[in-house]
Simulated assay, not measured.
Amino acid sequence: MNKIIAFVRKEIVFVISFALAVLSCFFVKPSAEYLKYINVNVLFLLFSFMAVVAGLRFCGVFDTCARALCRLTSTVRSLGIALVFMCFVFSMFITNDVALLTFVPFTILLLVKCSQKKHIVYTVVLETVAANLGSMVTPMGNPQNLFLFSLMNAGVAEFCLILLPYSIVSAVCLLGACFVLPSKPLFENNKERSDFFEAKDFVNAKSSTKGIPVTKFRTVVYIALFVLCILCVFDFISSFVLACIIAVVILIVQREILLKVDYILLLTFVCFFIFSGNIQNIPFIKAMLEKAVAGHEFLCGILASQVISNVPATLLLSPFALDLKELLIAVDLGGLGTLVASLASLISYKLYANTEGAQGGKFIKIFTLVNVIFIIVLVAFKILSGVN
């Protein structure tokens, strides 16, 4: 029973999506038509990205990049800027949740060893905001983008340009927010810095690679597979062929990686596909949602994201949206706000909460304040600039 309760707490979004899918089946009789609800291309592409990025992460590619960049920093502020913008940039390509899974533990470890524990909460909060905002500018940056990209009649460049203005404003705001951090030196001298970065317990602090041999060959393989994923986004290869290639190659090279794919997220998509499909076949609910969503995509997307998070909000609202571009902007900006507005934010909070001496209440207060400021600024930018 305890295991069931723990699973429900951990995967609450999946549980809700499953319950909604089952409930909708009482109104629309299960049939072969259900298969038409499911966007298999999105599932294949999402699986491919998750598998390849998991492989790169386990090879320590992102840790290596982080250590190399942090060696160039000398103050608490410059370190914060480096960490925050690593999340911002990497999330564009490896998704916001993977960026946080990679860099938040690294950040906590680094600041503890630098005796800068009091700056952990604010830095992690900024990293979370950075990951959510950086990921919005590319199709592969987060699950909702990948899904909406598959629905929109837009090329990759056109898609990226939709959110590029918001990304630029976000980067400027993040840089300004980093200046709250003090400019005091991280270390007293260069020798202390050198000893710190060369310390065995720091260099080898890769919990994600524990027990799994890491080789240059595997790294090259995963990079090649990642390039294939990008080519799939540009329609040079089908998502089905891509998924098959990646599954076979990883089975040969490092089969353990396939166990690291977030299959619960894939199942969550399936459940919401079924729920959304059934909703469209229940006349009075369909009419109600069409009236509420059509022409109000931005407001509905922002508000729904605050309650059920932006990925489920996207899957729920997209069938009734007349303007998918407005919905895209809404659910990406809607990842800001409450802690549940983005699944990536929950991941970040859990990573922090599991550390020794964590102050969950303080984290939530600072997180909420920073997120509210950012979402107000970005919504105001949209309204005042007239950017669509």
Results as ranks from 00 to 15, higher is better:
I302D: 07
Y349W: 12
G80M: 08
V270W: 06
K382G: 14
G386W: 08
V221D: 05
F240D: 07
C70R: 03
V214G: 09
V124Y: 04
M140S: 04
L23P: 00
L369C: 13
K118S: 14
K113S: 15
R9L: 10
L133F: 00
Q144H: 03
V311A: 02
L225Q: 04
Y37T: 09
N132Y: 00
L146T: 13
P213Q: 07
S276K: 08
I162N: 03
P213M: 11
S207H: 09
D63R: 15
D97R: 00
R255T: 06
I246R: 06
P312H: 02
V233A: 09
V340W: 06
S318D: 03
L23T: 10
F27S: 14
F381R: 09
K113L: 15
F236R: 12
L23M: 14
Y349P: 03
G277P: 09
V253Y: 04
I250P: 07
T355Y: 14
Q306F: 08
A21C: 09
D195M: 11
A341Y: 01
T368V: 05
A157R: 11
T75A: 06
L316A: 15
L151T: 04
L23S: 14
K29P: 04
K206C: 12
L72M: 15
L35H: 08
F7A: 08
V104M: 05
S17H: 01
E11S: 04
A32M: 11
C160T: 13
V8Y: 09
I108N: 07
V203L: 14
I212A: 10
F234I: 00
A243P: 09
V169D: 02
T138E: 00
L315M: 15
V340C: 09
V241D: 08
I376N: 04
V340D: 07
L265Q: 08
C25D: 01
P319R: 05
F217M: 12
A177W: 00
E297G: 07
